[in-house]
């Protein structure tokens, strides 16, 4: 097993079932994932799809593992036209009950050396996870805070 590249942890005052729903249902992701509709409720072998706020498909990746509401693993290879052809990386979500909260760990690994996606990710996940926490605890997600590049990309329709 290779060493994970990024490990993010956040504690959310909501049960794992609710966090799982938010991570896998497009109607919920849209409210905190900066307008992205991310659907990942299928079984292993099904697809994880994501549409950006302009309705353009941004992801069509395989679901590798799905054990609701504990563990979800999918591939990660955005369909952005201007990104060089990088190998698919991998995202793992682990949900554990911790006291009366959910401890959510997101691991992102399996990048190519010198990956551009690698650099984008390091800004993206903290923003998505902070917004997810806010959404589940207060009912409201946060405004996008990732880099201008990604916002322009989203506005231009990928």
């Amino acid at each position: 097993m290779s060493k994970p590249t990024f490990v993010y942890v956040t504690y959310i005052a909501a049960p794992p079932e609710k966090v799982w729903q938010a991570l896998t249902k497009a109607d919920l992701s849209e409210q905190y994932w900066f307008g992205y509709r991310v659907e990942a409720s299928g079984k292993p072998g099904d697809r994880m799809t994501a549409f950006n706020p302009a309705g353009v498909k941004a992801h069509d990746d395989p679901i590798i593992e799905s054990d609701p509401p504990r563990r979800l693993v999918y591939g990660w290879k955005p369909l952005y036209k201007d990104l060089p052809d990088e190998r698919m990386s991998r995202v793992t979500f682990e949900l554990e009950l911790f006291k009366d909260q959910t401890r959510l760990t997101v691991t992102h690994d399996d990048f190519d050396d010198g990956s551009i996606m690698f650099r984008m990710i390091s800004k993206g996940w903290p923003a998505v996870l902070s917004s997810l926490k806010s959404f589940l605890e207060t009912g409201k997600g946060l405004a996008p805070s990732w880099d201008d590049e990604a916002q322009k990309r989203a506005a231009a329709g990928a």
Binding site: Y8, V9, L129, S130
Partner: peptide, 27 residues
């Protein structure tokens, strides 16, 4: 404080910078 996240790999414990709490403060 959740500023460091750890992952066990075999007998080793790996330490990762976890920027999420700092992001929340900034937000």
């Amino acid at each position: 404080a959740n500023l460091v996240a750890t992952v066990k790999r075999g007998r080793e414990k790996l330490h990762y910078l976890n920027p999420v709490p700092i992001h929340e403060i900034a937000e």
